[in-house]
Amino acid sequence: MFRRALWLFNKDLTSELRTRYAINALAMFIIVTISVIMFAIGQETISAALAGGLLWVVIFFSAMSGLSRAFVSEEERGTSLLLQLVASPTVVLTGKLFYNLILVFAMNMVILVLYSALFDAFVLKNVYIFFFSFVLGNTGLAFASTIIASIIAKANSKGTLYPVLSFPILLPLLLMLVEITKRCSEGVKFEDIAPEFFALVSYNVVIAAVSYMLFDFIWKE
């Protein structure tokens, strides 16, 4: 199954590198969002907690601009039928998930590097905990955005529906990540943040399980 999913991932990655639908949208959105925040802050001094919160705002809106492409591009070009013919729903979801995982990690690494370079207030006293929460956060974001993209791909107003439907599903994840980032900037120890950390793991497990359970019904009709 994984081999088959890797072929789909390979197809999507090659397609993306040739058409640059998602990469261009993501790059533009990252630049615009970070620029707007920089202009809005101006010469003001912001706290490390606020800077951490704003990081996830940038990540959320950037994700909304490009991560739906995995399914929307198939639907818009009329190639969904071909995918249904050649691959089982599990293979399709896994392949698309691999693709979105790579896109989310690449996007968020760029955001993190730019953000760290441009915002002096963004200071992490516990980098290790932040790193692990960043990985878990990206995984949850990729899972949630993939399944939501598959739902909205068949709708007429895809662009509007994606952030609207994503917000309530991603809100618990974002709240946990904002809290963990804030605590990391204060130099928290793992024991003090363990509940939030386990909640993050649980979120990933739940969203992954729900995705695989629901996808058959979403994909078929």
Partner: peptide, 26 residues
């Protein structure tokens, strides 16, 4: 399966489309 309403991947060559159809089936 083939039909007029089936759409192949425009950004791939004929060989790549066929290769994908075979490989994804294992």
């Amino acid at each position: 399966f083939a039909s007029p309403y089936l759409t192949l991947y425009d950004e791939f060559t004929a060989k790549e489309n066929l290769e994908f159809a075979v490989n994804i089936r294992g």
